[in-house]
Amino acid sequence: MSANIENFPGTPLSQADFDEGKILTTHWKPKLEYGWDAGVAISRYLAELKNGRLIGIKCNRCRRTVVPPRVVCEWCWEPMEAWVYLEDTGTVNTFSICYIRWDATRAKEPQIPAVIEIDGASRGAGILHLLDEVNADDVTIGMKVQAVWKPAEERSGSITDIKYFRPT
């Protein structure tokens, strides 16, 4: 069927059609602001970040320790109750060198987001964070890193209480 059709429907527009007002449009700028409950597990996680510590949680069935903590083990469907303090060191599981910001505009300085497997948690259990104090070209998967914390008085109970991770 598609072989016999020359004109598929659809009217493509160019930027000029908008800029020159060739077509009519309406615009809406909603105010979409939210207050998300951090929940039981993440509230504790944030409170411990404020104390300058990373905390995970262990499943008593599969013996897995995960971070960020959660109230239920998604593997076993069992409540998780055993809190475990973790190290603030870890291993780079994967990383990127990012030149664009959230809205797809160009950033001046690249950032290095990474998944970091945290020491004390089970193998493969990592968190998303940033790397710094390292040349982007020198970052490797498997590299050992350590958290760089904000001073205690500046910490607010946020993942950004860790400024970034740096090579050990």
Binding site: T94, A104, A114, L128, S158
Partner: peptide, 22 residues
């Protein structure tokens, strides 16, 4: 995640870049 990840100001490409690199 709005609490544990968005605070780092990520963009969507991060997640693919991280997977691709791995």
């Amino acid at each position: 995640d709005h609490t544990t990840e968005r605070a780092l100001k990520p963009n969507l490409v991060w997640i693919f870049a991280l997977e691709m690199n791995r």
